[in-house]
């Protein structure tokens, strides 16, 4: 049974992606309860992150009558309602119910006039979880790509975690790191972008995946557009420097100067937190994927590990880049001084 906190429903995962198209409308083809449940969850998370929750999410409002006679007409009505608002894109997410009764969602959407419609199959009972929904949505939205492949020297971020508290901080850090190489991020696929921008998928020279769970998406885009990819955002001091080297290599840029500058930046950061040297800490929430970074911090700051007074958290996922480590160390310092 899937009861992991990090998993959940395919529908919620897909919605976390499609809601990030700023001029898009998402239709959930299912009962109102599915819409209410998933939307409430995302709303609560966004508000908790001090973000305005403004996506337009509609329901095809399936009731028993549609279950018996088919829900395709209800979907057509919902699409007409959505189209009347002149969105840049309509995303249709199926639900368990519409999938179980076999509504031909693709056919309905293909025959509907108006804006682009992207279908994401998200019947949760089919066995997928939240991350499968994210993946399905990214692949479904990739059909909008229109410019690639052209390899214009820019970077595309793939699959930012839209429900993550520090998503924008991670973006800023990646922008900073890539600027050291003289490279800019052209497309965030998909976070806070209009539908028209999604056409730029495939035109960049490098894709950077949020994490390795999206490796399959990265492989598919590599085959379709010829775009190489880095399989995760950088974590840790050494990991961040390796990231710069790898990005430089993939983009055909000499990264030595960028690495040198970032190493100096990291040394300044380490000296700024010299008060943490030799402190006894007990890591809270440490999982195996974060172990290398935890070991690196132990080594850099001569930390002693044990059941010491400083119970310092190791968040999952880890904060990105040198700036992420800076935020983490500030937090540890507050705890150790308390």
């Amino acid at each position: 049974m899937n009861s992991l906190r990090t998993e959940g429903c395919t529908l919620t995962g897909a919605l976390s992606v499609t809601m990030a198209v700023t001029d898009g409308i998402t239709i959930i083809h299912g009962p109102d309860g599915c819409v209410h449940h998933t939307t409430s969850l995302l709303h609560a998370l966004q508000v908790d992150h001090d973000r305005l929750f403004s996506p337009v999410i509609l329901s095809s409002s399936l009731t028993e009558s549609e279950i018996i006679f088919g829900g395709e007409e209800a979907l057509e009505r919902a699409i007409r309602n959505a189209a009347a608002r002149n969105p840049g894109l309509i995303c249709v997410l199926s639900s368990c119910v519409s999938a179980a009764i076999g509504d031909d969602v693709q056919a309905v959407c293909a025959s509907s006039p108006g804006p682009d419609i992207v279908v994401v199959p998200t019947g949760g009972f089919l066995g997928g979880g939240f991350s499968d929904g994210v993946e399905q949505a990214l692949l479904a939205l990739s059909v909008l790509s229109g410019e690639g492949p052209c390899s214009d020297g820019t970077v595309t971020l793939i699959g930012e975690k839209n429900l993550e508290y520090e998503a924008d901080a991670h973006y800023r850090e990646l922008s900073r790191l890539l600027s050291l190489l003289g490279v800019r991020i052209r497309l965030r696929f998909v976070r806070d972008v209009p539908a028209a921008a999604l056409r730029q998928l495939g035109s960049g020279s490098l894709n950077i995946l949020r994490d390795s769970s999206l490796r399959e998406v990265g492989d598919i885009f590599r085959r379709r557009f010829g775009t190489p990819c880095i399989t995760s955002f950088p974590v840790g001091f050494a990991g961040t420097l390796r990231f710069l080297e790898q990005a430089g290599e993939e983009l055909g840029i000499d990264s030595r100067q960028a690495v040198k500058r970032e190493r100096e930046n990291q040394e300044r950061l380490i000296s700024h937190f010299q008060d943490l040297k030799g402190v006894e800490v007990s890591f809270q929430g440490l999982n195996s994927s974060a172990l290398p970074v935890a070991e690196e911090l132990v080594q850099r700051f001569d930390l002693r590990t044990g059941n010491g007074a400083c119970r310092v958290p190791v968040p999952d996922p880890l904060p990105v880049g040198t700036a992420g480590l800076s935020r983490l160390l500030h937090r540890w310092r507050r705890i150790c001084r308390a």
Binding site: E64, E66, I67, I68, F69, G70, G71, E72, A100, I101, G102, D103
Partner: peptide, 16 residues
């Protein structure tokens, strides 16, 4: 009765 052939769920129609 029930739905037109090829759409919906006839079994649910029987329950209803």
């Amino acid at each position: 009765g029930g739905p037109e052939p090829g759409v919906g769920c006839a079994g649910r129609g029987i329950i209803a």
